[in-house]
């Protein structure tokens, strides 16, 4: 095994531009792969966040008594498909309003708790329960002024997540096949260059592993290096862009990315890199060595 690895690295050292080309092509593929997986992770996170936020909000008429609101709160809490209920009283609404407009004193001067509606925010256990929650709240027509339903936002987000997933799969597939072919061509060239040497080795009693091993290790190394490099660049990129990402997503906690996810990402990336390198080498060897 030691000889095989040594031989593989000697081959790579002797043809540095071919090695660099193979690693860079794989780097691009894995870079896109890791970037899309992070994008998917982020969009799933956003979707989950929105799904678990108050999904149906009912604004009460100003004359609705607080006791009635508490009654509705209790009714909603009793439903099995309701995860959480939060009542925002007129005073709470005023406090929120003040917080949001604290930089604009003019807007604060004219507003009192009386003119702000109380509201109830009801979270469903899953997205399918939202319509039922809406119907439940509509029963209190005399007390409720308006019902805001966030299903459309969630549907739209889910659609985008799906689009990201499929676009990612399509791009990575095309890049993956291209990388595989390029790697196969590079290794084929090397095998062709060593054809005479391989023939002599065969006559001297070399086993298939003795001949094929270094090429296989070379392919695997390209895959592993390409994958590792891309993971490093993407991870450093995310760390560098952290302040901007936090600012962009606001209260949605997409960061920090858990280490378990990063470990899973690099684990799968290295396995795929090694496998694709081995496949490319095997295809090249099968084509050139009878």
């Amino acid at each position: 095994m030691g000889r095989t690895i040594r031989e593989a690295f000697t081959q790579m050292r002797r043809t540095p531009y071919q090695a660099l080309g193979a690693i860079l092509v794989l780097f691009i593929t894995f870079f896109v792969g890791y970037a899309f997986s992070l994008l998917l992770y982020g969009s799933e996170h956003v979707l989950r966040f929105v799904e678990t936020r108050p999904q149906v909000t009912a604004f009460f008429k100003s004359e609705t008594a607080e006791a009635d609101i508490r009654g509705i709160e209790n009714d909603m809490l009793a439903k099995p498909y309701v995860a959480k209920v939060k009542v925002v009283t007129k005073n709470d609404a005023l406090a929120l309003y003040k917080e949001e407009n604290k930089r604009d004193p003019l807007l604060l001067e004219l507003v009192t708790a009386d003119i702000l509606p109380a509201s109830i925010e009801v979270s469903g256990r899953d997205i399918g329960s939202l319509e039922q929650i809406q119907k439940d709240l509509e029963v209190y027509k005399s007390k409720v002024d308006e019902i805001v339903f966030q299903k459309n936002i969630i549907d739209s987000l889910a659609r985008w997540t799906m689009v990201i997933r499929w676009v990612g799969i399509a791009i990575i597939s095309v890049l993956g096949v291209t990388s595989l072919i390029i790697m196969m061509v590079i290794i084929s060239m090397k095998v062709a260059m060593k054809r005479q040497e391989i023939g002599i080795m065969r006559l001297l009693g070399a086993t298939s592993w003795y001949i094929n091993g270094p090429f296989l290790i070379e392919g695997v190394s390209y895959g592993v290096f390409g994958s590792l490099l891309a993971w490093g660049v993407v991870t450093v990129g995310v760390l560098y862009a952290t302040p901007w990402i936090i600012d962009f997503f606001g209260e949605i906690p997409v960061l920090p990315i858990p280490w378990s996810f990063l470990a899973f990402q690099i684990g799968v990336g290295l396995a795929v890199g090694a496998l694709s390198g081995a496949i490319a080498s095997m295809l090249a060897l099968r084509r050139f060595i009878k």
Partner: peptide, 21 residues
């Protein structure tokens, strides 16, 4: 087929054109 390398270590060949690397 896997026994061929062993056979080739028992029956060695010297070629007219040497076949050195």
């Amino acid at each position: 087929k896997s026994a061929v390398p062993k056979l080739r270590r028992e029956v060695s060949v010297v070629f007219q054109d040497y076949k050195l690397l």
